[in-house]
Design a protein around this nucleic acid. Structure first.
Lengths: 162, 162
DNA sequence: TGTCTTTATGAATAATTATCCAATAAAGTG
DNA sequence: CACTTTATTGGATAATTATTCATAAAGACA
């Protein structure tokens, strides 16, 4: 005999997984949650009841991590902390472009500095004396008389082409 | 009757915690490690035997997180998260801080420059434009109007323990 | 030196998270 | 429609990580 679909048992009522994971994001952004058990409760409070197993899988899929912050654990999205927000502004590998009166520093994604530096070198610009690349930072040395804002404008223009 | 201090039992032989945490960093940077149990083995292989409890505490202190990456778990330093917690550790990697009128050079233990540079970057200090790390040397570029002695004081303060 | 405090540690255990498995709905196939 | 395939799920349980508790080493200080 067929179940009356009143309350789900095993294979389940297929709730919307995507909606649930969206809700998890929302909850974690608005609350300080220390473990999956508490998250389960908050989900339940917002009308979505699932098993711990399901939540565990969701957390893995969403890349959620658990980290100790001044004494207490917290479930986090690692990208909350990362500075990738600027990504869209310039080239896809470049996070930021800064300068003082004599030099320009370009921050990149990890491991991408060399590629960005090479790209700038290859431009053979009369504005650029040379570059030195670490792992995620490019140091750019301008030629003598360059106006730094002009140089930065030039760099941004060329890096935006990607 | 007093134990013969031959092999440690409870309160233990006090191995060097800093050295161990350095080794943990090194191991995780050079290997793909999926859980603390495997890390325990690798530590043991490198001559440092501790209990799982100790490793758990080390991982918490170092801000190490466990994340699923294409099917497998991995212990990682989430670059941003770690910096805050590791502060005490960075200091012991730094051998010297020198400067001229426009730049600061930081000498580190072999292979540690990148870690120290990342740590300084992560401070997001308005005094620091950026850093470039080689193997054992960090080149630090200050922002425009910085007084170098002030900057050095700032760096030393942040690199020393606590 | 003797007592008190702080820190580090391991064993045992608690807490937390991940996975195995069977169940089942949804979707596809002919 | 009957049958197969695929994705999702919960219960049970395994695997992993964190904490509690007892100890010991080292320092502080009278």
């Amino acid at each position: 005999m067929r179940q009356k679909k009143s309350r789900p048992e095993r294979g389940k009522t297929r709730m919307n997984k995507h909606a649930r994971q969206l809700k998890i994001r929302e909850i974690l952004q608005q609350n300080s949650v220390g473990n999956q058990h508490d998250l389960l409760q908050l989900l339940r409070d917002s009308g979505m009841t699932v098993a711990q197993a399901t939540l565990s899988r969701d957390c893995a899929e969403l890349g959620i991590i658990r980290s100790k912050m001044d004494g207490n654990y917290r479930l986090l999205f690692p990208d909350d902390n990362a500075g990738r927000i600027i990504k869209g502004l310039v080239g896809i590998e470049v996070l930021a472009v800064n300068s003082n009166e004599t030099t320009v520093i370009i921050k990149t994604l990890p491991g991408r500095a060399h590629g960005v530096g090479s790209y700038l070198d290859q431009l053979r610009s009369p504005l650029i004396l040379g570059t030195i690349a670490g792992d995620d930072t490019v140091l750019l040395i301008p030629t003598s008389v360059v106006n730094i804002p002009t140089l930065i404008a030039y760099i941004l223009k060329n890096l935006s082409k990607n």
